[in-house]
Computed example of a mutant assay.
Amino acid sequence: GTPLFAALATGSKEAVETFVQAHAVDQPPGSRLHKLCSQYRQDDDRINKFKRNFKLSNRRTVLSYLAELGDSDILALVLETGRFEANSKDDDGRTPLARAAGSGREAVVKQLLEIGKIEVDSKDKKGRTPLLWAIENGHKAVIKRLLQTGKIDINSKDENGQTPLSWAAIKGHEAVVKQLLKIGEMDIDLKDKSGRTPLSWAAGNKHEAVVELLLQTAEVDINSEDVNGRTPLSWAAEYGHKAVVKQLLKAGGVKVMHKDKNGRTPLSWASGSRLGIAVIKLLLETGKVEVDIQDKDGRTPLSWAAEKSDEVVVKQLLETGEVNVESKDKNGRTPLSWASWSLMGLISGRA
């Protein structure tokens, strides 16, 4: 690959032609390689994808770069020489197809798939397939082509246990989620290594459209727990995703008072986060919330809000008339004690 890299880096069509022709000497004049070379020579409008300041790495193959940059013309020439393996992996374990898919190079993906011997579902060192790379970056056309091969394990997991649907949910790619949900073999509630489902990720990342699509399937466990016992509502509450909390509450069946492994409820998480102000009112309005409930450390939502010196949340909780301002946690600290400690920290930090 080094001589070709050198030829490409010069930006000279003649240098590339010289390289390819050297590999075509034993082939008849009417061969496909000669035809491709002729077409390449006659293309005066061609834009060189390799600039003179392009940095090449010996960790990558020539096909890897050509696929990622979308240089289908030279890729065709190189493949036709028969000197390069279309399924070759770079040092990251990624194939040319994976590089093209991740960069959204639909023409190159089509070109590689037409070879017929391409490993469509090949995993790299992180367990990620070309489909996962395309999904992460939301390349719908590439995703469609890959799915049409019929050679995709739609529930394939990467090293973190995340599936194609997980990645689409994490990134909030609504159109991609729609594409995937049309596939019958999809396991919508598969958990990753942290125990989180696509719904959990979509809820925690404020992807309302994706949350709605997943809820509409009627196949998701709305109260699915991750390894820490946290639910989609817990994640949405902590980050103050008001619209998502509304969606989850409206769906019905959601456990508003669910305790995670630390004994914290969605209200507790919302109260302890400056982002949670918007959802506290929604949670209180359900009429199903025990406002003064203690977690495993004996701390209440008021305690968490006091630590953050969050006056608005403290006022919301006090106005319920259901909190014990003298409630002590396992260390004997009251909400007032936490508020004082927080204020002292703020003062000393500015001193």
Score class of each variant (00 low, 15 high):
Ala202Gly: 05
Phe54His: 10
Leu8Arg: 03
Ile74Gln: 10
Asp73His: 12
Leu282Asp: 14
Trp304Met: 07
Asp73Tyr: 10
Val289Gln: 10
Lys255Glu: 15
Ala175Ile: 08
Arg264Met: 12
Ala15Glu: 13
Asp45Ala: 14
Ser303Asp: 08
Leu113Asn: 01
Asp310Pro: 04
Ser268Glu: 03
Leu75Arg: 05
Ile280Phe: 07
Arg333Thr: 09
Lys117Leu: 13
Trp269Ala: 03
Leu4Asn: 09
Asp297Gln: 11
Asp297Val: 11
Val109Cys: 08
Ser88Gln: 14
Ala169Met: 12
Leu63Glu: 11
Glu326Phe: 09
Thr95Phe: 02
Val16Glu: 08
Arg32Tyr: 10
Ser166Lys: 00
Ala6Pro: 01
Val211Cys: 00
Lys171Phe: 06
Phe5Val: 06
Leu318Ser: 04
Trp133Phe: 13
Ala306Pro: 07
Leu180Met: 07
His241Phe: 04
Phe5Asp: 14
Lys193Cys: 10
Ile115Cys: 10
Glu307Met: 05
His173Glu: 11
His139Met: 08
Trp269Asn: 02
His258Tyr: 05
Leu199Trp: 07
Glu159Met: 09
Leu132Trp: 11
Leu97Phe: 02
Leu75Met: 15
Gly332Met: 02
Val244Pro: 00
Trp341Met: 12
Lys246Tyr: 12
Ile277Tyr: 13
Val325Gly: 08
Asn160Ile: 03
